[in-house]
């Protein structure tokens, strides 16, 4: 199997699991959000295929529901980072001069900084002051995705700019200009389709980074807030019970690993594809 196929298969499997979460929940008949203190730390069984956690909640169901949250953040970052990055990269390549210099110095600066300490600071900000309530799943997803896009656009923009610069010197651009194409039309209809590959590669890598960063922030208690499950905050819970239920620490990490490996494989596959 090719890298692209393997990567897409991994991501598809995880997405299908996340999509099927309500079905599995109906089939198993538990509520993954409701604590059941009589069923704490149960070993894997037919009723609980992966066992239960410290509050007696089914780990498999929480894993699937956590996948919905983690993949939603990843999807939001993918859209945001590739959109913003492409726009900035195209603008820098097209405008040149001062615009280009300023935008690329900002990108250099962001790339040179250690991102995680900054993410920790940003994630600790009280967003309720600007009208985003904390602790609700949707606003948490938006908050984390926003913070990650603020860093994720950089590699996309750099690659988009480099590819666009190479294309701007081509004859077809001059031909389109002579034919009277407006600059916006030229960029969107003629240039963009020719630089899709590097943008896709950079975006896939951005998503891989976003999944890791989201899980790290949630693990540190700054990302998705419990009781909503995410792969990161499930591991944070598992860390506190490594003595009583060491297996609970395995599954969420495995899910993160597969998701990130899937994105990397897709990026690799797209890059190596001939043509």
């Amino acid at each position: 199997m090719t890298r692209l196929g393997l990567g897409l298969a991994l991501l598809g499997l995880l997405a299908a699991g996340a999509a099927a979460a309500p079905l599995v929940q109906a089939w198993l008949g538990h509520d993954p959000f409701l604590p059941d203190l009589l069923a704490r730390f149960e070993p894997p069984s037919r009723a609980h295929p992966l066992g239960t956690d410290d509050l007696g909640r089914d780990i498999l169901l929480r894993l699937l529901h956590g996948g919905r949250v983690s993949l939603a953040v990843a999807l939001a970052v993918a859209l945001g980072a590739s959109g913003l990055g492409t726009a900035i990269g195209l603008l820098a390549a097209w405008a040149g001069g001062w615009t280009d210099a300023v935008l690329m110095r900002i990108a250099d600066g962001l790339l040179a900084l250690p991102s995680l300490p900054l993410l920790v600071v940003l994630a600790a900000v009280d967003t309720s002051r600007i009208g985003l309530p904390r602790g609700e799943a949707l606003s948490d997803i938006l908050r984390i995705a926003g913070i990650l896009v603020a860093f994720g656009w950089v590699p996309v923009a750099r690659l988009a700019r480099a590819a666009a610069l190479a294309q701007l010197g081509q004859d077809y651009v001059a031909a389109a200009r002579i034919a009277g194409a407006s600059e916006a039309w030229l960029l969107v209809r003629h240039l963009l389709p020719n630089i899709v590959t590097p943008i896709a590669v950079a975006s896939a890598l951005s998503v891989a980074g976003a999944i890791l960063a989201e899980s790290t922030l949630s693990f540190l208690g700054l990302g998705i807030q419990p009781p909503a499950p995410s792969w990161g905050n499930m591991l944070s819970g598992a860390q506190e019970m490594i003595f009583s239920a060491p297996l609970a620490a395995v599954w969420p990490g495995l899910a993160i690993l597969l998701a990130v490996a899937g994105c990397s494989l897709v990026a690799d596959g797209v890059r190596r594809r001939p043509g």
């Binding site: 860390q239 990490g253 993160i256």
Partner: peptide
């Protein structure tokens, strides 16, 4: 692809 904190755990 391995999350640092998971490997540590």
């Amino acid at each position: 692809s391995t999350p640092t904190f998971w490997l540590g755990l």
